[in-house]
Design a binder for these strands. Structure first.
Length: 425
RNA sequence: GGAGAGGUGGCCGAGUGGUCGAAGGCGCACGCCUGGAAAGUGUGUGUACGUCACAAGCGUACCGAGGGUUCGAAUCCCUCUCUCUCCGCCA
């Protein structure tokens, strides 16, 4: 959520910046400015009325004590009138605040200066590449065939027991999952992140805090009996640790890492390119989250980018990093780097990580603040990134490392899997 | 799930209708004291909103959340929620 003071002070600037995200904010901003004006007016009048009522109450008490009951009951009538006024003003104020807030929630975060304009994927900017692309192999099998051949991931079984997009991992497939999770967590810990194991269901406040609601309502699984949402990413519980928290500057930076299952309904996004592991309703991901001062947050974003790139190097996967254009940028993000690995049999780049700086957008929603060394209270910046999401990593590993003898496991992972090859039988 | 007890400031803890944003203590900050430190001592120490220069000052709200009674509520009533204890159930 954007800060009301920013909108109040530079409404045109906001509208202009949001155009980069292809978001027309003109009407919203206009309403916000008007409602904000109204809100402050009502607040002043209400405060004044309450101040008068407080004065009267005190006076009535004194009069009773002095035995002047007549004068007291006359003032009581006055007080009753004030009470009516304050009740009306209070209701108007609440309604105005609610209206204002509802519109504020609809405004996406401002894009960073460096975000290129653009409508979609094609306008993203490739900022780095790494690893070597495998040679073209016409006989290479896509991962959905490989998993059947080696009998390591079973979609049919998932289909029977749960539904589409909920596969079973089996044998060396399950082992590979576990290896990747542990590898990613250990790397994170080595890089100074604190490991967390979060709840997989969160309440409504948390879903609002990180911005999944109201923007992505319908994309999360929901347990209505208990009013809980299944998390689409560990970002939600991990960042919400700091909801309504006032940190001290010495507490920063905060760097957390967490593994979790992730649940996504993916309503309406099923299509031709989502075979096999490319898109699932439940998948595994290790997430890194940082809380930073505004001064340091972009430096932190670069650190995180380096860190994620390092993981892909260890896994010996060819990758590229793209800076998302305005149109592709998420609702909450100011700047996002997507990481894509090349999947040789599909001959496609698969997104395996998204590293973002949300600046104070989430912090403002969550009231995540910190006290500076000078004693000023201000909003912190939040960042997060996948490090990494498993299914597409697995897809790329399987496709890129297939040999006549089996599927080669990258060296860095072998200590975790306990085997060097995925083999038949 | 049943019964009981309770949620007060960074922490502990007083406070059962007005003088309470809230005693006292701890912690913290700054000063005094000291060769230095400890001890001692003095002062200060919440958040949000409004006014305003995102200053001071002033005003308003906040004692788990939301409603109610009252001229006036941390204090009384109702609902919800969370924690603790006992019982039940259970990985």
């Amino acid at each position: 959520m954007l800060q009301i003071t920013t909108i109040r002070q530079q409404p045109e600037e906001i509208v202009a910046r949001l155009k980069i995200k292809n978001f027309d904010a003109a009407t919203h901003v206009q309403s916000i400015v008007a409602l904000d004006e109204q809100r402050r007016e009502l607040q002043s009048r209400l405060d004044e009325t309450l101040a008068n009522a407080n004065r009267l109450a005190k006076s009535i008490g004194d009069l009773y004590k002095a035995g002047k009951a007549d004068e007291a009951s006359r003032q009581k009538e006055e007080s009753a009138a004030l009470k009516n006024t304050s009740k009306t003003l209070g209701e108007e104020l609440d309604a105005t605040v609610k209206k204002l807030n509802d519109i504020l929630l609809l405004l996406p975060n401002l894009p960073n200066e460096s975000v290129p304009a653009g409508k979609a994927e094609a306008d993203n900017e490739i900022v780095a590449t790494g690893g070597t692309l495998p040679e073209k192999n016409p006989t290479a099998l896509p991962h959905w065939d490989l998993i059947k051949k080696y009998n390591i991931i079973d979609f049919d079984l998932g289909n029977k027991v749960t539904g589409a997009g909920f596969p079973f991992y089996r044998g060396q497939g399950a082992r590979l999952q576990r290896a990747l999770i542990n590898f990613f967590l250990d790397q994170g810990i080595a890089a100074g992140y604190l490991e967390y194991q979060p709840p997989l269901l969160v309440n409504e406040d948390s879903a609002y805090g990180t911005g999944q609601l109201p923007d992505k309502d319908g994309q999360m699984y929901y347990a209505p009996v208990d009013k809980l949402y299944l998390i689409p990413t560990a970002e939600v519980p991990i960042t919400n640790i700091y909801r309504d928290v006032l940190l001290r500057e010495e507490d920063l930076p905060i760097k957390n890492v967490a593994y979790s299952n992730c649940f996504r309904r993916e309503a309406g996004s099923w299509g031709a390119h989502v075979r096999g592991l490319n898109r699932l309703h439940q998948f595994d991901k290790v997430e890194i989250v940082q809380i930073r001062t505004p001064e340091e947050s972009y430096q932190a974003l670069e650190e995180m980018r380096e860190y994620v790139a390092g993981l892909l190097v260890e896994l010996e996967l060819p990758y590229r990093i793209v800076r998302l254009c305005g149109g592709d940028l998420s609702f909450t993000s100011a700047l996002t780097y997507d990481f894509e690995v090349f999947s040789s049999a599909q001959e496609r780049w698969l997104e395996v990580s998204s590293v973002s700086n949300f600046e104070s957008f989430q912090a403002n929603r969550m009231k995540l603040r910190y006290k500076t060394k000078e004693g000023r209270t201000q909003l912190a910046h939040t960042l997060n990134g996948s490090a990494l999401a498993l299914p597409r990593i697995v897809a790329a590993l399987l496709e890129n490392n297939q040999t006549d003898d089996g599927i080669r496991i990258p060296k860095a992972l072998q200590a975790y899997t306990g085997f060097e090859m995925i083999t038949l039988g």
